[in-house]
């Protein structure tokens, strides 16, 4: 943009401000637009995050002044059975959510994309669990799976095998899987919606070309649909890994990490360590490890994206 200025001695002349000044001004404008968001970020995210990192190197009960202990909290984590067990549960959880809901979501979306009549009905039915508050669906599922008042004694009374004494949330062998299935009940319908939206944006001409080349349904899905929805798929895989290490709500509501730590996650362990045991320094170290896992996942994704030249 140019400006017109009056030149001494009469007449007018068109002058352009120096590029350096324009650039500086442009940068300043951008920074000012960003400033409110930046301030919020510094206050509520960066500040507490950096403070947590600092506290992770201290012995702190959350009340009294912290004392510096170096890497002791991290060294203690390595030998902490509860931490190792919780980390293992998070890994199992990640594995489950990278496979089961993803497969169900892809399959559901693909099947829905093939039909026209009744699609809206199925979309609505699949999506309803997602809009139910977690605390409500958890309470309902706890009742359903109750060994005394739920569906299990009813099925047992009809002679359904395996129901006698079944207690999914009270059995250390079954509890984690039961919670994962409950969470999946709410989650997979949401994935269907996202995948369906992505599939609908795939160019129909590609499907026509594939069919002309003699591709069947599977080849069509593998060579046209999947590459077509790759940005959505990769994003959801990435977020699934990150969310799997942050999972808290269902576990806390249904079992609070029990029985006997069989459903403990890093998040529930962190909460209990900080607020139950008053070991805020140790809990901060757990939090830093969780953040590092997420950061590593994102870094891995960025490296892959650059090497494979993904346009995501």
């Amino acid at each position: 943009m140019s400006t017109t200025t009056l030149v001494a001695g009469g007449g007018t002349a068109t002058s352009r401000p120096s590029p350096v000044r324009t650039n500086r001004r442009r940068r300043l404008t951008g920074l000012l637009f960003l400033a409110p968001l930046l301030i919020v970020n510094v206050l509520v995210i960066a500040g507490p995050a950096l403070t947590s990192v600092a506290y992770s190197f201290t012995d702190w009960d959350g009340i009294n002044p912290p004392s510096f202990v170096g890497w002791d909290n991290y060294a203690a984590l390595a030998g902490d059975e509860a931490f190792v067990s919780a980390l293992g549960h998070n890994l199992l959880w990640t594995l489950f959510f990278l496979t089961v809901p993803m497969s169900m979501g892809l399959l559901g979306a693909y099947l829905l994309s093939r039909i026209r009549r009744g699609r809206l009905l199925f979309q609505t039915l699949f999506f309803i669990p997602y809009v139910v508050a977690t605390v409500v669906s958890a309470a309902v599922w706890r009742q359903i799976l109750s060994p005394t008042a739920g569906i299990i004694p009813v099925l047992d009374s009809f002679g359904v095998p395996g129901m006698d004494g079944l207690n999914p949330l009270g059995d250390p062998e079954l509890a984690l899987g039961a919670i994962a299935l409950i969470n999946n009940w709410q989650w997979w319908g949401f994935l269907v919606m996202l995948f369906l939206a992505a599939m609908q944006s795939v160019n129909p001409a590609l499907y026509e070309a594939a069919r002309l080349d003699g591709a069947g349904r599977w080849r069509e899905f593998w060579h046209v649909t999947l590459p077509g929805i790759r940005p959505t798929l990769v994003f959801l895989l990435l977020m699934t890994i990150i969310w799997s290490f942050l999972v808290f709500d269902y576990v806390y509501i249904l079992t609070q990490g029990g029985p006997a730590g069989s459903t403990d996650m890093l998040s529930t362990l962190l909460y209990r360590t900080a607020f139950g045991e008053g070991r805020a320094g140790h809990a901060s170290a757990v939090g830093v490890v969780m953040a590092l896992i997420s950061a590593t996942t994102i870094a891995g994704y960025l490296v892959l994206r650059r090497r494979l030249r993904w346009e995501v």
Binding site: R25, T29, L32
Partner: peptide, 29 residues
């Protein structure tokens, strides 16, 4: 196309940002 923000508007925005920050800090304390 770029738009050069008049200096007066820039000061207004800066003031707004600091007021926002002050409010947030106030909330926190």
């Amino acid at each position: 196309m770029t738009y050069q923000l008049p200096r007066r508007d820039m000061f207004k925005m800066a003031g707004g940002a600091f007021a926002g920050a002050w409010l947030l800090t106030g909330c926190g304390s």
